[in-house]
Amino acid sequence: MTHASLTTSPDGTVSPFLSIVVPCFNEQEGIAHLVERCRASAATIFGDDYEVILIDDGSTDNTWDMIREEIGKCAQVTGIRLSRNFGHQIALTAGLAAVKGSVVLVIDADLQDPPELVGPMLQRMRETRADVVYGQRRSRAGEGWFKKKSASLFYRLLERTTDIIIPRDTGDFRLMSRRVADLVARMPERDRFIRGMVASLGFRQVPFVYDRQERFAGRTKYPLRKMVAFATDAFLGYSMVLLRFSSLAALGMFLVLLVVAGYSLYSWMYLEVVPGWTSLMISTILASLFQLVSLSIIGEYVGRIYLSSKERPLFVVDAIERRGHDGGEPAASAGVDPQARPPQGIET
């Protein structure tokens, strides 16, 4: 947490400042109720020490007018209007880049994730000394069979094909410390998968189990086309399983080669075959095997170049402790020794 984002109460204690980040796209019917619930939830815990940041992601309805109306009613409401529709994950990043709070709540505008949970989530963050409390869905009201089953399959496939532990049955609904929000906003990759980016940073991250509610108003902004594109970004960004498909095909081709080679030799020795058939079959499979092996090697190189191009930090420093020169107690520090700091790391 940054000292600039903390406030001091009259009794001298330091209290956190909350930022609520809400990406919005064609949500004109629910903006007023959204802001009302976010403000009430924040004020209960934080008093006036909060802000609600609404990001209009190129809406084609009156979403921006409704946001401006709410800004006129309350000084704690901030509106950000993007020049066009960049997508949910980019809009969320724009909001994270603008936060001032020491803790950040990310929530969708459809109110399927209740803002009233900010109190219990903050309590869990304090009890576990976590940097991230992510909402984990116990149930999903108002969603069809296909949406539930496809989401379940997506998370389980992603879990099996990535080195990073991305929790199952989660969305972007989470409470984060300021340092995590800043790190995510600073990561330069364009095809963003926020929940994967947060998971890749490490720190203590704990679940908060809740029941997801039905959409308050309007229709879902994630049709099948966007769901497929989102899943593709997740797999391409955090898994090399697609690039390694040629390696799996080469392994399968090798097994086929053994079977065909055995059958070809058997036919040559005991059956009547056309002269040259045996050598032609074995030569064809060997050539195919060589091509697939070559593609798998190229795929490994391409995959590593692709992951390097995202410029993710090699490591993230949580804290450094050294014993003071006077022999006193170890001194906690978030800084890094310039002479000992490897390149491309991030200190918090």
Rank of each mutant, 00 (worst) to 15 (best):
A109E: 11
V104Q: 10
I320T: 15
R37W: 11
V206G: 11
L34F: 13
F46I: 04
D163A: 09
P120Q: 06
I45T: 15
V99E: 06
G58A: 09
Y301F: 13
T78F: 03
F290S: 15
D56R: 01
E36M: 09
D191G: 03
V273C: 02
V256S: 12
A181R: 04
I282P: 06
L271S: 15
D49K: 02
D61H: 01
G202W: 07
W64R: 10
Y306E: 13
D61N: 03
P167T: 04
D337M: 08
K147H: 14
E70H: 04
L117I: 07
M187A: 08
S333F: 07
D48L: 01
D172F: 02
G202K: 05
M197P: 01
E143V: 00
R178S: 13
R204A: 14
A261N: 12
P167M: 06
G119H: 10
R341F: 08
H325T: 07
I45L: 14
V180R: 03
M281E: 12
R244K: 12
D61P: 03
E311C: 05
T2K: 02
T232G: 03
V52Y: 09
T284I: 05
M269F: 13
A181C: 08
V133F: 05
A91Q: 05
M253L: 14
N85W: 00
G327S: 07
E36P: 05
I80M: 06
L105A: 06
L292M: 15
V106A: 11
R129K: 12
S294T: 12
I166R: 03
V206W: 11
R84C: 08
M176C: 13
C74D: 15
G252I: 00
V103D: 10
D163H: 09
P114T: 00
A91G: 09
G12H: 11
S41E: 09
I90N: 04
G58E: 12
V184N: 06
Y301P: 00
F86I: 00
R129W: 02
Q205N: 06
D57N: 11
D318S: 10
V118P: 14
P10M: 01
H325A: 15
R312C: 08
V133N: 06
R124L: 13
P330K: 01
I67F: 09
P275W: 10
V132L: 10
G47F: 05
D108H: 02
V133P: 05
G72M: 01
D110K: 00
A94E: 14
N62S: 13
V336K: 00
A234N: 07
R304W: 14
R129P: 01
L117Y: 13
A97C: 05
S309G: 09
G87V: 00
E189Y: 03
S279G: 01
Q205D: 04
T348M: 12
R156I: 00
T220R: 06
R195I: 03
S333Y: 07
K310R: 14
T162W: 09
T13V: 08
A91S: 12
G196V: 01
Y266I: 02
V273S: 11
G324N: 13
S59Q: 11
I45C: 13
V132E: 10
V77G: 09
T220G: 15
F230I: 00
D48K: 04
Y266P: 04
M187K: 05
V14N: 09
E347R: 03
G252K: 04
S296K: 00
D233R: 13
F17Y: 12
E70P: 03
